[in-house]
Simulated scan of single mutants.
Amino acid sequence: MNNFTFYSPTYFVFGKGKEDDAGHYVKRFGGTKVLLHYGSGSVIRSGLLDRVKKSLEKEGLSFLELGGVKPNPRSGLVYEGIELCKKNNVDFILAIGGGSAIDSAKAIAAGAKYEGDFWDFYVDTPIKDALKVGTILTIAAAGSEGSGDSVITKEEGMIKRGASSEYYRPVFSILNPELTQTLPAYQTACGAADIMAHVFERYFTNTQDVEVTDRLCEAILLTMIKEVPKAIKNPDDYQARANIMWAGMVAHNNIVGVGREQDWASHSIEHELSAVYDCAHGAGLAVIFPAWMKYVMHQDINRFAQASVRVWGCNMDFAHPEVTAAEGIERFKNFLSSIGLPVNFKELGADAKDITVLVDKLGLGENGTTGNFVKLTSKDAEEIYRIAAE
């Protein structure tokens, strides 16, 4: 196990009806002038936004609104939010929605305390300050409610990039599984793929002797395999929704990633799919992750075989561990397909003719690489896209 530091200060409020206490928590964490940041659909139709407003009013808090967040959140709305915050002396941002709303809120929070272009943070500039962010989660997927990460798409060139900072960790997150019960089955499935991908990005590592976090990763994956089909079959299954929601947070606040090298190549490669085709991030991961697994499994065939046995229930072929590894990958792919997700370019609506475009947008050039489990070049990424296109 490697040396590590871990600090996860987010205050989690979990359970039924807890969104009605949002104003209390904003006030508790020092907010006085709030920007409500959200999408444009169910948050409004369900009455959630109105309940949150009443909660803020009850605490005597003033607020502004900025809706319109889209999946794969855009830079244009971030710029608009930054201007609103600076002009109105906003000191707290409350994101209502899924990972897109939360990621956008984080970008606004950092940009509001910065004199330059917020996009600098998504290229190479460290974040040194940000407004406080709280969240009310409506989609279990990205884990942004507990993480220090944010992903934004720059509309000029449709470039999708991520940034990480401890300043990006929300000060509080309200998690009510009831708020996810109205999600379409496809969104639930996309969220599940994202959660499982966050675990696998950490699980496939070159670091040795990380049994504790191996077992934590496996527990989350087994939970998803058990609970996701239940939630899709019965959207009102509160207990299944609750387990999935907490799994999504645990999968990405990095408790399962400490002390080990992490990969993240699959996320990097997928980002170009969702930037070009504007597909759901989880759907893109469902296409890319099994392809990545097939391409890199010989880096540590025993680790892949271990996942196949412990997570997917395969029998270990000690003479031919590559057979066990391949069987696990196939079971993963079949699971994704069984919950209604695409597993190749055709099902996603992508076109193999665009692979050169995707590789170029990845921005690795001649000598750059992505990932750590195997450091992938542009040529490697091209091969993974081609496997995904089969």
Results as ranks from 00 to 15, higher is better:
residue 2 N to L: 15
residue 301 I to F: 10
residue 89 N to Q: 14
residue 369 T to P: 00
residue 142 A to L: 06
residue 336 L to Y: 11
residue 295 Y to Q: 06
residue 97 G to L: 12
residue 303 R to A: 03
residue 23 G to K: 07
residue 278 D to C: 02
residue 31 G to C: 08
residue 244 I to Q: 03
residue 197 A to W: 00
residue 248 G to Q: 06
residue 388 A to D: 01
residue 369 T to H: 06
residue 369 T to V: 14
residue 30 G to T: 09
residue 299 Q to Y: 00
residue 58 K to V: 01
residue 383 E to Q: 14
residue 129 D to L: 03
residue 363 G to F: 07
residue 259 G to I: 10
residue 354 D to R: 11
residue 44 I to K: 14
residue 69 V to Q: 06
residue 74 R to Q: 13
residue 22 A to L: 09
residue 274 S to Q: 05
residue 136 I to Q: 05
residue 233 K to D: 11
residue 254 N to F: 14
residue 340 G to H: 09
residue 243 N to I: 03
residue 323 V to D: 12
residue 137 L to T: 09
residue 146 G to H: 04
residue 40 S to D: 02
residue 14 F to W: 08
residue 142 A to D: 06
residue 42 S to P: 01
residue 348 L to S: 07
residue 262 Q to H: 03
residue 1 M to C: 05
residue 158 M to T: 03
residue 269 I to V: 14
residue 98 G to P: 07
residue 48 L to G: 03
residue 347 E to C: 07
residue 143 G to C: 12
residue 390 E to F: 05
residue 136 I to K: 10
residue 106 K to W: 08
residue 385 Y to N: 00
residue 339 I to C: 02
residue 175 L to G: 01
residue 3 N to E: 12
residue 211 E to W: 06
residue 193 A to F: 01
residue 145 E to L: 11
residue 44 I to C: 02
residue 368 G to N: 10
residue 273 L to F: 01
residue 146 G to E: 06
residue 100 S to H: 10
residue 253 N to Y: 13
residue 14 F to H: 12
residue 378 S to K: 06
residue 67 G to R: 12
residue 136 I to R: 10
residue 66 L to M: 13
residue 49 L to G: 07
residue 96 I to N: 01
